[in-house]
Amino acid sequence: MTPPTEPAVTVVVVAGGDPPTSEEIARLPGNPVVVAADHGLDHAVAAGLIVAVAVGDMDSVSPEALTTAEQSGTRIERHPPDKDQTDLELALELAARLADRVIVIGVGGGRLDHLIGNLNVLASSAWAGVEIEAWLGNAQAVVVRGHRAIEVEPGTTVSLFALGGPARVTTTGLNWPLNDEVLDPLTSRGVSNRATTPTPQITVSEGVVLAVIP
């Protein structure tokens, strides 16, 4: 007799950029495990999310949010300010140990260097075994290794970016398909494709791709 399959675990990481929208909160799966990255704790508390762990150097979280979280049983993992990882990277490191899928919210806004760094760190090989995506209001950034289907409305713009080096990509369900072709990270070839089906398929046989739905 085949043993029952364990249900997939989704962890929501709340970063310290723009506060998540009410639409983003409504789209989250029910009763998610929530990890807050530093000032993301303020966003999570304001949104009424129950935070399992807050991680970071806690240099930008408000005392009120910290007190509320501690009183509700949130575990606080403090790190020194002089560290080699961003607070989001620390949160992803923790989330990847717990999850099959990670959804990052609150990653946009603030400084441009933070946004670029945050989008790049999503594709780290350290969490290659976990499905990771970031929600930025109506936009979405999905990390693709191996094979992944993306749920979009037909006609939606889908841009593909190779991260960290060239990526070999095959697509179906996009207006301009790629057939085992190489995307170079220093070109714009993957920008502004368009979905022709509700579930475009992206297969990455080498490298890693960030699929962006703006």
Rank of each mutant, 00 (worst) to 15 (best):
I132F: 02
T68L: 10
D82V: 14
P154D: 06
V130L: 03
E93G: 14
L136A: 10
I132P: 00
H147S: 09
G109C: 06
E70D: 09
N138F: 13
P80Y: 08
Q71A: 15
R111V: 14
A95E: 03
A123T: 14
A134W: 00
A141R: 00
E64I: 13
A96S: 13
E64V: 14
L94R: 11
K83F: 07
P80L: 06
V144M: 06
V144Y: 01
A69R: 04
Q85A: 15
G117I: 04
T68E: 15
R148L: 04
I116A: 07
P154T: 07
S124G: 12
G109A: 07
N120H: 15
G129E: 12
E133G: 00
E89L: 03
L98T: 06
H147C: 08
N118M: 03
V102M: 15
G117Q: 05
L112G: 04
R111W: 05
L122P: 00
I116G: 10
A65M: 10
R101S: 15
W127V: 01
I132N: 00
E93M: 11
L119I: 08
E151P: 04
A65S: 15
D100M: 04
R97W: 05
R148W: 02
I116W: 15
T86Y: 04
G108K: 09
W127M: 02
A139G: 12
I132C: 05
I76W: 11
I132Y: 01
A141F: 00
A65W: 03
A134F: 02
L136M: 13
V152S: 08
A123N: 06
T156G: 12
R78D: 11
R78W: 12
A65P: 04
E133D: 12
E93P: 04
A128F: 05
W127D: 01
G73P: 08
E64C: 09
I132L: 10
G137A: 05
L88A: 05
N118H: 15
A91T: 02
D82M: 13
E77T: 15
G146S: 06
G110W: 06
L136N: 03
I76L: 11
P81F: 07
L90Q: 13
V152P: 05
P80F: 07
E64A: 11
A123F: 01
E70M: 15
V143E: 01
N138W: 14
L66I: 14
A141E: 00
T68M: 08
P80K: 06
G155K: 07
G106S: 11
A91W: 01
I103F: 02
A126E: 12
G155S: 07
G129N: 07
E133A: 03
S124F: 08
G109I: 06
A126S: 10
D100I: 01
Q85I: 14
R148A: 11
E131D: 14
A123M: 06
D87N: 11
E70G: 14
I103L: 10
